[in-house]
Design a protein around this nucleic acid. Sequence first.
DNA 1: CTCGATTGTCTAGCAGTGCTAGGGTCAGGG
DNA 2: CCCTGACCCTAGCACTGCTAGACAATCGAG
Lengths: 192, 192
Amino acid sequence: MSVQERKQRERADRERLIVATARELAEQQGWDAVTTRRLAERIEYSQPVLYSHFRGKREIIGAVALQGAAELAVSMRAAASAADGPRGRAAALARAYLDFALRNPAVYEAMFQLDGGLAFAQESTPQPLKDAFAALLENLEEVAGAGVHPGLFTEVFWASLHGLATLTKARRLPPEDAERRTDLLVDRLASL
Amino acid sequence: MSVQERKQRERADRERLIVATARELAEQQGWDAVTTRRLAERIEYSQPVLYSHFRGKREIIGAVALQGAAELAVSMRAAASAADGPRGRAAALARAYLDFALRNPAVYEAMFQLDGGLAFAQESTPQPLKDAFAALLENLEEVAGAGVHPGLFTEVFWASLHGLATLTKARRLPPEDAERRTDLLVDRLASL
DNA sequence: CTCGATTGTCTAGCAGTGCTAGGGTCAGGG
DNA sequence: CCCTGACCCTAGCACTGCTAGACAATCGAG
């Protein structure tokens, strides 16, 4: 019995190691550098071991994305609860979101740009993703405005942040004005 | 002399054929399906011919992106000039932008998500890209608001649209509410 | 008209990718 | 102590972007 338990524990450890290593490698050298061979070498196992934990590379990306979503939710909630007033919370939320995207570009990519085989905006959507959206929703309801569906407002708010994050990351927007853009956006969207 | 001219013309024709075929294939089956082999087969030449026109796959993506930027600028200007009032022009612009992204997902991807080796927001930025941005700027100056730098406002407006476009395309947002989100966004951003 | 040079294109191949079939090793239970 | 089954690795498949080198067609000079 305890032998089986130990094996299960070791398997779970190894799975965490795979995800952590993939994330690390992606942040260091980009997702292109995360090949099954390199990943296998870093965890000091052969390639097929990866496939005994995940169906394929997509699922590994998905696992990193879920981890990131959980962290993003935590830091957004922390930022919001440290801010004063509806407007202040919205601004703090935006800053926390963009800060996360800036500090964890590869994880952000896994969450919202790459195909990690995850379902979004459905019942089957994994809990961490729902929760990250909920963290936005909770703090934006009060600035959505009268007669505006909070969910819809949150989607627009999120999409706008996402646009700023990705265009900045992809060097489509000059990085130096990032803060001014964020302020302007929050200023207009959170109109109350 | 005229022989050389004919050859140059044929080369230019073939280059256009490559770009058009790459675009078509990408729209039909996604950029993953655009391999140098498949592309070569479709234009009925061997692979190395591609490399006599472009440095590599990146440059082909870049060429598709430039074509798309030119078209996007045209349709945004057309939409804006058919609309009435500053607010109406902003709304028409947003709809034209999102409509383009929806109708040409692969081209949109080439422009703003994939690496086509193009420079953005610099002097060395190719003209079509500058021009597409200019088409936005021209029609948004009047709704930027007092004391708000028009360029900065345009960047924010563009980023928000980009967020809506990409999250919808990637099935991160429910497609059915797309129009309501657009209306809400324009409503808040173009506040005058 | 012939012959060398140049231009253009193709075949074949390299190093790398994600993924998998099959064999071998080692530990657990009878 | 041996057999069985779980586990992992080697080797390989079909594909990717890209390129070296051979070959053929065309051009200009004599």
